[in-house]
């Protein structure tokens, strides 16, 4: 059966997309979890819908619209939260809704029907075209290289931002860099699980990995493996039962999360902690 599945090009592309997105989401998701910026990441992802609308309106690949808009959202939310006297969740909420609104307006302005709109919202890993795969690969390379080159600074601002500043690290700049990497990760994952559900795959594998990791690199490696596992299992289940692939992947991840939490809970109460 494996041979049968792999004989389809769309299946090979799907598995490749799952692998590439898992690498980005394992590395960046770990930062999201330890730095506790899940809600910001959700805001960036939803704002990115404006980019999809922009792409449709301009008549280009919607993913190309997502890149600038999600980067803009990352910088906007980051700077508003840091510099302005606006509480961070207010900034996130505003960007979140405004981005979605811009997307809806642009799609409304675009004559005719917006094809595949559903797949950008909720993902469809079975229909990743080769061009998108190449783009995902390139963004993945940028994300991995940046995270590798600046790992000591990113670790420092994630653990103790004040100390990083005292040590001469431009911590606001690196915080914005981290948010930008999250934005690019969103682009990588749109095809797999869609912008609405990106947040789950960005946080769940890393959150599970943290329970079993003693260092950030170990956490990233485990999160990558878990993300790949959830994607492949989800893909397989959606193939077997003819379900929406993005939603199935998310439900697999959520089920694993619940199981791990329950296991930890029963073990914790047994030890009476």
């Amino acid at each position: 059966m494996v041979h049968e599945i792999l004989s389809y090009e769309f299946m090979r592309n799907a598995l490749l997309a799952a692998l590439l997105s898992s690498v980005a989401c394992g590395i960046i998701g770990s930062y999201v979890v330890v730095r506790r910026i899940g809600f910001i990441s959700g805001g960036i992802a939803h704002t990115a819908f404006g980019g999809i609308g922009l792409g449709y309106w301009l008549g280009v690949n919607p993913l190309l619209g997502v890149i600038p808009v999600s980067l803009l959202a990352a910088l906007g939310i980051g700077l508003l939260g840091k510099k302005a006297k606006v509480s961070e969740d207010t900034a996130i909420g505003t960007f979140w809704a405004a981005g979605m609104a811009v997307g809806v307006i642009f799609i409304g302005l675009t004559p005719g029907y917006a094809p595949n709109l559903f797949s950008y919202l909720f993902g469809n890993i079975l229909t990743v075209p080769s061009f998108d795969l190449w783009m995902i690969f390139l963004l993945d390379a940028v994300i991995v290289a940046t995270a590798f080159l600046f790992q000591k600074e990113l670790l420092a601002i994630s653990f103790d931002e004040e100390y990083a500043s005292v040590s001469g690290v431009p911590s606001t700049a690196f915080y914005l860099l981290l948010l930008s990497l999250i934005a690019l990760t969103v682009v990588v994952m749109v095809r797999v699980v869609g912008i609405v559900m990106v947040i789950a795959l960005l946080t769940v594998p890393a959150a599970i990995a943290r329970r079993f990791s003693r260092s950030l690199p170990a956490m990233m490696a485990l999160a990558t493996v878990l993300s790949l596992l959830f994607s492949v299992i989800g893909l397989w289940l959606s193939y077997l039962f003819n379900l929406a692939s993005g939603a199935t992947i998310i439900l697999v991840a959520a089920a694993a999360f619940l199981l791990v939490q329950l296991a930890g809970f029963t073990r914790g109460s047994a030890a009476e902690r």
Binding site: V34, K152, S158, F159, S167, G168
Partner: peptide, 26 residues
């Protein structure tokens, strides 16, 4: 230190961060 108690880092890793001020980018 206001940090996340679940942050996966050991004592050695924490202390190593003190060398950050002596390091250049990259």
């Amino acid at each position: 230190l206001f940090f996340d108690r679940d942050f996966p880092i050991d004592v050695e890793g924490l202390v190593l961060m003190g060398r950050l001020s002596r390091k250049r980018l990259l």
